[in-house]
Simulated assay, not measured.
Amino acid sequence: MIWSQVVGQPDAIAVLRGAATAAAGVVDGAGSGAGMIHAWLFTGPPGSGRSVAARAFAAALQCVAGSGCGECPGCRTTMAGTHADVRLVVPEGLSISVAEMRALVQTSARRPTGGRWQVVIIEDADRLTEGAANALLKAIEEPPQRTVFLLCAPSDHPDDVPVTIRSRCRPVPLRTPAPAAIAEVLRDRDGIDEQTAGWAASVCGGHVGRARRLATDPAARDRRAAVLRIPLHLGRLADVFECADDLVKTAEADASEVSGARDEAEKDALKTAMGHGGTGKGAVGATRGSAGAIKELERRQKSRATRTQRDALDLALVDLAGFYRDVLVSTGGAPATLTHPDHAEHIDKAARTWSPESTLRRLEAVLSCREAIELNVKPRIAIEAMLTALHRG
């Protein structure tokens, strides 16, 4: 069944399965629909599976059996992202614009074409601009009879999701999956050997997708190892700039690798659609009028590359923060599980060398860097300032 893809969330699954059953009763005229509402807010830490849970719920809503069997066309097409009545909004840039949200709201007002419900999934709903949030609010306040909105956000804090929206949504809080549950998924679903699966689950910070990348991608393992070498390799001031350069260049390379081929394909497709290379009547005029569309595409691609670079840097900063957190755990002799158990020797060495106050200052420098980058400080400047603070202690 599709619920097997939602890892380590038994309470949330029970709520969603009950709502899907109630929704089936509404469509079939066999129930009152108690427990089913038109707006849901999935919250939880990174890697908890917010979007996966939302897709599974969407599949259950489209399921002919009303349970998420995983075999019917409704389940299969929803999970594959090809269902005509399930729209997925994945922000590729820094935010979700009001124009994009207005267009989505208009589409969501239609009746389902072939499915049982019209479902709108908004990943990273915390990236809604103020105008986009207001446009969505109007739709949630007066939803069409057969439309369901599924919003995903890190938390239900007003800074993430406006109070006016979250007050009209039923919350679905998700928790960080246990390492044992993640390892089981890697073994059973991805065919990864037990030792590798156990290691990846123990160092991924509860992020299922990260665990899969670490288990299958040697480059991802190398990037993580390079980041975790930084705390004990800042002996000279020159090391600060060298490490900063490595971090920024790695993030830029990741963004280029992810976006490069896709950017060119999108641009070629747009040029073809706008008549580039054509020789027929009107081809010259069509080509001349395509300049604005190409410029808008390039703007969106630049925004997507910026977001990809920031995400890569943020992942490195999360690993660094986890290292300093582990040093504090080791210094205090707490029984808490280490974030990076495979670097326990380096963590113990740092705990013997640094004072707790110095470690805490380093941790605060990493967290401040994350905040600075989110506030549009140039990544290289923010990274160099952070590494300088780490060097000084």
Rank of each mutant, 00 (worst) to 15 (best):
M1T: 09
I2E: 00
V7C: 06
V7D: 08
G8W: 08
Q9H: 00
P10H: 05
D11G: 11
R17P: 03
A30Y: 00
G31L: 04
P45D: 07
G47H: 01
A56L: 09
F57K: 01
A65G: 14
G70V: 05
P73D: 14
M79D: 10
V86T: 08
I96S: 06
A103D: 14
L104T: 12
R111D: 05
R116N: 07
W117N: 07
A125C: 06
D126I: 01
L128F: 06
T129M: 01
G131I: 03
A139T: 04
R146E: 04
T147S: 14
P154V: 12
D156S: 15
P158F: 09
T164Y: 07
S167G: 09
P171F: 03
P173C: 12
E184S: 13
I192D: 05
A201D: 00
R210E: 08
A211I: 00
R221Y: 09
I230T: 13
R236P: 02
A244I: 05
K249F: 07
A253G: 10
E264Y: 10
K267N: 10
K267Q: 15
G280P: 04
K281E: 15
K281W: 06
A283C: 11
T287M: 13
A291H: 05
D311P: 02
G322Q: 11
G322F: 06
G333T: 09
R352L: 03
T353A: 15
S355A: 13
S358C: 09
